[in-house]
Amino acid sequence: MRAAPEGSHGGGDGCTGPGEHLIRAGYTLGGDDGCIANARRQALAFLGQAEADYPLSVPARARNLTQLVVSELVTNACKYAPGPVMVELGINIHTVDVVVWDSDPFMPAARTTDPDRIGQHGLEIVQAVSQTLLIEQQPVGKRITARITLFDPPTTEKPGDL
């Protein structure tokens, strides 16, 4: 995995403007049997590196959601797209961005909720746990960006309100 401060290479990722991330890292997966577990490990290592290098704390909830989103998006890419899968992670003081590129030009959409359906809930899950989900067609394949908040927004409920 290659990690670099945001200013060291240019361009946005579809959800953020240039210069917004504290750190970004990218890596390519070959689509073999261990690639999904490897992607989750890379995500955890990235979050740990961000905490070590910056005055930043990644709550367990955000850490777990990042692993879940990476797992779901990489699983879909490995299952449906031929060739390598590219993953990019970016973080700032508010959010973690997970970006997955693959070679399949098919533009997926989250299906409507169906508790009787077995499987094919990955994009639904990603959409439910992400602040933003952006799917973009690329010259070769597609890019999916999911933004995960580091902290839950404050609630307006008072104790005793239910």
Rank of each mutant, 00 (worst) to 15 (best):
E136S: 11
G11F: 12
T16I: 09
G83P: 00
E72L: 05
D53W: 03
I93F: 12
V100W: 03
D116K: 11
G30N: 01
P108T: 13
T28V: 13
R24M: 04
I118R: 14
T113R: 04
S71Q: 13
G160M: 09
A62Q: 09
V70D: 01
D102P: 08
M1T: 05
R117F: 03
T95F: 04
G34A: 13
S103E: 12
R117V: 06
V85Y: 00
F106D: 15
R24A: 06
D97S: 13
M86K: 05
Y27W: 14
G119D: 13
R61E: 07
L89F: 00
Q120K: 14
A60N: 07
L73E: 03
D152M: 04
G31Y: 07
D97K: 03
L133V: 15
F106T: 15
G34S: 09
G30A: 07
P139M: 05
V140I: 10
T75V: 05
G7A: 07
I91W: 01
A43Q: 00
A109D: 14
D102S: 08
R117I: 06
L162Q: 15
T145Q: 11
R147K: 10
C35H: 05
D33H: 09
L65V: 03
E136M: 13
A4Y: 15
H21P: 07
I144K: 06
H9C: 12
V99A: 04
V58F: 07
Q42R: 06
Q137E: 12
K79M: 10
